[in-house]
Design a protein around this nucleic acid. Sequence first.
DNA 1: CTGAAAGCGCTTACAG
DNA 2: CTGAAAGCGCTTACAG
Lengths: 352, 352
Amino acid sequence: MKKKELQGVKEIARRANVTIATVDRVIHNRAGVSVKTREKITKIIEELNYQPNMLARRLASGKIIKLAVLIPSVTEETEFWDAPLRGIQRAKTEISQYGLQVDSFFFDLSNKQSFIDQANAILESAVDGIVLAPTFIQEARTFAAACNTKGIPYVFIDSTLPDQQNLSYIGPPLFQSGYLAGKLSTYALREKSQLLVVNIATAIESYTYKETEEGFRAYFTDHLKPYPILRVDIHQTDEKSVFRNLQPLFESNPAIDALFVTNSRSFLVARFLEKMNPAPKPLLIGYDLVKENAKYLDNGLIDFLICHQPEDQGYRSIMTLYQFLIFSKAIDKEQYMPIDIVTRENQAFYRN
Amino acid sequence: MKKKELQGVKEIARRANVTIATVDRVIHNRAGVSVKTREKITKIIEELNYQPNMLARRLASGKIIKLAVLIPSVTEETEFWDAPLRGIQRAKTEISQYGLQVDSFFFDLSNKQSFIDQANAILESAVDGIVLAPTFIQEARTFAAACNTKGIPYVFIDSTLPDQQNLSYIGPPLFQSGYLAGKLSTYALREKSQLLVVNIATAIESYTYKETEEGFRAYFTDHLKPYPILRVDIHQTDEKSVFRNLQPLFESNPAIDALFVTNSRSFLVARFLEKMNPAPKPLLIGYDLVKENAKYLDNGLIDFLICHQPEDQGYRSIMTLYQFLIFSKAIDKEQYMPIDIVTRENQAFYRN
DNA sequence: CTGAAAGCGCTTACAG
DNA sequence: CTGAAAGCGCTTACAG
């Protein structure tokens, strides 16, 4: 005699004396429902505190969400990007069956035009969301503006730009990771020590390097340690250029006891140290557990690598867009990664 | 004319010339399928690299998986366990709509009987899987044996026991984290330094402490650094006992330049150092970013905390059982957490 | 403006 | 040992 209570839309439909099709129209705010019916159904939905079953929803709707990823291509020298790509791949595998499609576009870190071209390709392909490494400031701004116009949400990965309408930034807290590097370098300092900050990149003007170096310097300011901090900007990323720039520095500054390389190219500096005769042995801090860095961590030339779980950055970028697009979830505009310290002793267990 | 390819079980059924019911039987290894049919279907499943649609699966099956968690209760003094519990909670929220139920049972770390009682309560409640902190060796063994008999899978969290049939161990690589502590402590060492290992626990005989300390000592052996390493075992976890044990040690050994506390109770040691007059300032390394430790990290009395993402340990424990029970996934018997180094400078970004 | 029906990819009785 | 059918909670044409 007891009527078993129906679930979800069916129960709503029963109470409202309509069919589930009408209920569905109300739930999705679709046109074609009389005001009266709409009100009645809305009320019931509230009464029941109805929560849609997302499983059923995804299953029934054939809709596919298309995401695009625009990041640097992986080369031996920019191996870093292999990790985010793996994370993106993992996210893709996990949720592709829930109606997600991810297309990856790659640009050449030493070629702005390649960024522009790929960005345009994405804009033409009608996507629902974008993961973007905004390496080239102006070009990324232009691209972001285009996305704003089209109403396409985008998240920044690994580095960010100020004053943008990005849905989120997923990457390191730059200033603080530089700050930590400052602290770590103090373990090598003596009375008369000098420090050296090394920037190696074709796009050193990037906001990233400035922030990082400022953090590094702030540590010494905050702690009233007025060691001289030298700086060298190397605009070519080949071994020769690095050697050519570092050699004179080391010759005229024998008291450099700690080196901070502001990106993953610390292995280039390690190679330089290795070849010097006599080999100096300053404390060397770099970024990212790429293969070449791991090698020098192992043989002791690199002391610390600061890492930001790059695989997880990729994974989270995709997941963030997915949560936003499918579940309309509220998203934190800043999703800072932890600042991990990787040494020879713990690197085997690091989740890169 | 082109036949649209069917999805999933339907496509398999079509190719095998059977109905989806039979396909379902094979997928779930249910009895009542001829060897021939089973083989044919299995082959097709492999060919198609079939991945079941979990959405559909969960939607169609009303089944609920019941998991039980048996971990220490959270007190000010065992605050560590708050983090795994949060992770468990997060996993629960994420997948409860996919048919998961998690019940938590807590025991008192200073009361073996409470462990036994809760363990029995779990055994009586008919669960499908168990997350277990095997703090009390003998009692945990007995419980594990009972689970083996009943065929209930269980995973160890945070610490482990040798030679058990646990589905997995999710926790730190103890030896290596001690080893890293050895390395870190060298930053404070001078010519005549002494080191001190401090164990504070009611159950010091635990395998955990031995492993950790061995790792610590191994670092010095491996690197031919024959510093004297003192050791103190404090069997009471109250402040007074800690003070009473440490005081004479520091009075007779003024050259203790580095201290290694083998669990989360490093804040007790920091409190001791704080109150000494004159206050010594050795390098202090402990475990876990619990509130009291964070406080001493901040004011500089603790230098390094080694952490193992306790929140994630909880999350993974649940997810591991879920993957195993729902997807029949193969599970790694060892799931080592990374060995994280937390300092004052990076703690704000640590995912505890 | 509203409804009847098919279907998403599975699972679950039940029938034979 | 195998199949036919109903149903999980939704969405999507299509009909009226």
